[in-house]
Design a protein around this nucleic acid. Structure first.
Lengths: 192, 192
DNA sequence: GTGCGTTGTCTACAGGTGTAGAATTATGAA
DNA sequence: TTCATAATTCTACACCTGTAGACAACGCAC
């Protein structure tokens, strides 16, 4: 379906509010009205695009999650994705760029919840797995946004290898299984 | 200035593209044209709002940064901010919600760079301080977005105390000063 | 009172938005 | 070829966007 591909590309580039139905249609070689004839409305088209994205995991491949170095592999994948701005890697990007629109945010929430968050929760060890899975997704979101949307200088110009090495310990934190003590009693390794 | 306050509230709620000049003006008790008379354009108004926000640090107070428990305090502050949706706590929110608009993203990048990122870089120990400061800001952004914009269930309904306890080790990671070894040689504490 | 600069508003424009309904064209079977 | 049916487009509507230019109300010095 050419319309779906065009919509995906357009939403990834400009977000839900930033692109019009006419533009999506034109890039697909059809008229704006055909889009509505097929999908009912712009909102339903967006939902269809997001659902389509969810069917093919990008960062969270099953192999990555069960790996013994899951945290490291996730860090590598995140850096890889945010470095090359290729076409098939725009999965999450669509949702961050559209999050400011309430309608789009609701769709994104539902789909992230049902797919990525559920999968990730099952893969994380230790207590509070759902909350920690959500935080992990938050880190992924933050890095993507700062690197690709805001374009913060220090992140945008950072060599991939350095970024990977800096991200790995952060992600490892989520797969740690030792010292889960009650709040406040755990020592931190800060320098005072 | 009533217009500035109205604009700040409106941008925080709906983002740069999501709100119109007429709405901002009406909530300030004036006409849309007066806004342009004072600020020149919507874009310049947005820049003014962002610059105004930057003058009063929200998470990164100087006391927080030099504290011996800087990481913990930052985690606490982040949870506090994303829990209560009060008026004066909308600082970053404005930028995430507006990041999909290129014009707004450019303004946000410049201001974050000049204020928050610079300050945070100076406060972080160890090598790659700029990159790690940017990553820290990315984590803050991700949590805010997932919690307040996407509204991911696991994060939205998570008790503040739990969230704080889960965030602390993540933030501590950025203030660690031990074991900065070359890439790949550092042991991770994963369970295999 | 008279002039004047500021403050604010009114009207209007050119363009964009999503989408409903009618009209048109292409397609395939008889 | 003829005709029914599906695929696609045309026209139009009602509304919203940022903003330029002309105009009116205001306080205030003289």
């Amino acid at each position: 379906m050419a319309i779906l591909a065009s919509a995906r590309e357009a939403f990834a580039r400009s977000g839900y509010d930033g692109v019009g139905v006419r533009e999506i249609a034109e890039r697909a070689g059809v008229t704006a009205m055909l889009v509505n004839r097929y999908f009912g409305s712009k909102e339903r088209l967006f939902a269809e695009v997001v659902a389509d994205i969810m069917t093919t995991p990008i960062i969270l491949t099953p192999e990555t999650l069960v790996s013994a170095h899951a945290g490291d592999e996730m860090a590598d994948a995140l850096v890889r994705i945010t470095t090359a701005d290729g076409a098939p890697l725009d999965g999450f990007q669509i949702m961050w760029r559209s999050a400011s629109s309430p309608a789009a945010a609701a769709i994104a929430r539902r789909e992230i919840d049902a797919h990525y968050h559920k999968t990730l929760t099952a893969a994380l060890p230790g207590p509070h797995a759902p909350e920690r899975a959500a935080l992990l997704l938050a880190v992924v979101a933050g890095v993507q946004i700062m690197r690709q949307m805001i374009g913060l200088e220090a992140l945008a110009s950072c060599p991939p290898e350095v970024l990977t090495e800096l991200l790995r310990p952060v992600f490892r934190e989520f797969w740690r299984t030792d010292d889960h003590q009650p709040p406040g009693t755990r020592g931190n390794r800060r320098k005072r």
